[in-house]
Design a protein around this nucleic acid. Sequence first.
DNA 1: AAAATGACATGAG
DNA 2: ACTCATGCCATTT
Length: 112
Amino acid sequence: MKDHSDIYDAIYEIVRKIPKGRVSTYGHIAAAIGMKSGARMVGYAMNHCHGLKPPIPAQRVVNRSGLLTGKAHFGPGDEMAELLKEEGVLVKDDQVRNFEHVLWDPAVEIGI
DNA sequence: AAAATGACATGAG
DNA sequence: ACTCATGCCATTT
């Protein structure tokens, strides 16, 4: 495990910039770092973000449908949905309500 | 070195 | 409107 995870670093940086109460999608994050079709890479990076020094709010990262795809990777239960609810994101049946309302576009914030 | 896998996206039927 | 098939780039076996 070298420390070259530049891709991960880029992805983590974007996810870390997601404000509380907001969510983002893999496609938008991938596009923000320059990987238009690297949606899978974003998810892959999330899989490795377990135990990182800065807590990565991967719970704010959902698929383009607003569905909590990786909820199973957080906790045994609906910990991911609970976290989002705590932050103010309306989650119903593992799916974000008002998705477009809480959707945060990294490209806009970063200024791509 | 090649093939398989992955917390997705998009297009076509 | 819904389901099936392909693409994408990096990591792992």
